[in-house]
């Protein structure tokens, strides 16, 4: 089932009426979002919305604009133009109003290495204003099988253990919106599979919205019910994984991905020219 509400890189996406009265129930509403660094356009007029409970993957090659898009959703990077609303709040101006409703995990952001896992989680419980922090930490630790790690320094954990601890931090406030940047990067297949299962389980039981940036096609096929494919900062596809594979006449998402980044098949320049010519003929 396609859970998408809307998605486009070339049109405004949301109506004027929607922009005037932001819906606080819509986890993410991105409108005409652009980010330019000097002469480089990292994100180019993208628009999309995420529905509550959806699991959506941002897919694209290196430099496609995935991380910049996520960073703008988190309020870490300011858009050059356009708008990002999370639960109705403009993330450029009012991030604090909704920060407690979302969280983020990435292997590229660490928790302080010298602190024990329990100390780190206690600090973040305080920052997110979690009542009964000790109980919540115990619950999460049991759920993510990190109880034996709680009193060990975070810096001395293996990559897989760190990922689980990072996930524990990300789930501490039971976020309604969870943003994940390559959640299973550098993990062995068994651990990666376990993490994916946990994420799926969390999204289902909490009714949370997940947005993940990933290079792992198997992960995207397994987790996402919608894929937003970015290329050179633009959204070029926005479909369910199955629909994407079908429209490209391919067998796997990986083949679709390779077509896109190598400019083959549907997204080849000559195919685009043919499309434009037939559109002119039709008109």
């Amino acid at each position: 089932m396609n859970e998408r509400i809307s998605g486009s890189s070339h049109q405004a996406g949301a109506s004027v009426a929607e922009a005037a009265a932001p819906d606080t129930n819509v986890p993410v509403a991105v409108r005409d979002l652009t980010k330019v660094y000097g002469t480089i356009t990292a994100v180019d007029h993208i628009s999309f919305k995420l529905k509550q409970g959806a699991t959506v993957a941002l897919l694209g090659g290196n430099g496609a604009g995935k991380t910049t898009t996520i960073a703008m959703l988190l309020g870490l990077v300011m858009p050059t133009s356009g708008e990002v609303r999370v639960f109705g709040a403009d993330m450029s101006k009012n991030r604090g109003a909704v920060a407690y409703r979302l969280n983020f995990q990435s292997p590229y952001v660490d928790l302080p290495a010298r602190l024990t896992v329990r100390q780190n989680l206690t600090v973040y419980a305080g920052l997110y204003g979690i009542a009964n922090a000790a109980e919540r930490i115990a619950y999460i630790a049991e759920d993510l099988h990190i109880e034996p790690l709680l009193d060990r320094p975070t810096g001395k954990l293996s990559a897989g253990q760190k990922t689980r601890v990072g996930l524990a931090k990300a789930l501490l406030n039971a976020p309604e919106l969870l943003l994940l940047d390559e959640p299973t990067a550098s993990l062995d297949p068994d651990t990666a599979d376990w993490i994916r299962r946990k994420l799926r389980e969390y999204a289902e039981t909490r009714g949370a919205t997940l947005l993940l940036a990933s290079h792992n096609m198997a992960e995207v096929e397994r987790l996402a019910d919608r894929v937003i494919l970015l290329h050179q900062g633009r959204i070029i596809e926005d479909e369910t994984p199955a629909a994407l594979i079908a429209t490209h006449g391919r067998d796997t998402l990986e083949q679709v991905f390779l077509d896109v980044v190598r400019g083959r098949g549907k997204h080849a320049p000559e195919a685009a020219d043919r499309g434009a010519a037939s559109a002119r003929k039709a008109s």
Partner: peptide, 11 residues
């Protein structure tokens, strides 16, 4: 410690 990102996305 690459923790500032975590802090700046928190409340």
């Amino acid at each position: 410690s690459r923790n500032l990102g975590n802090l700046l996305i928190s409340p």
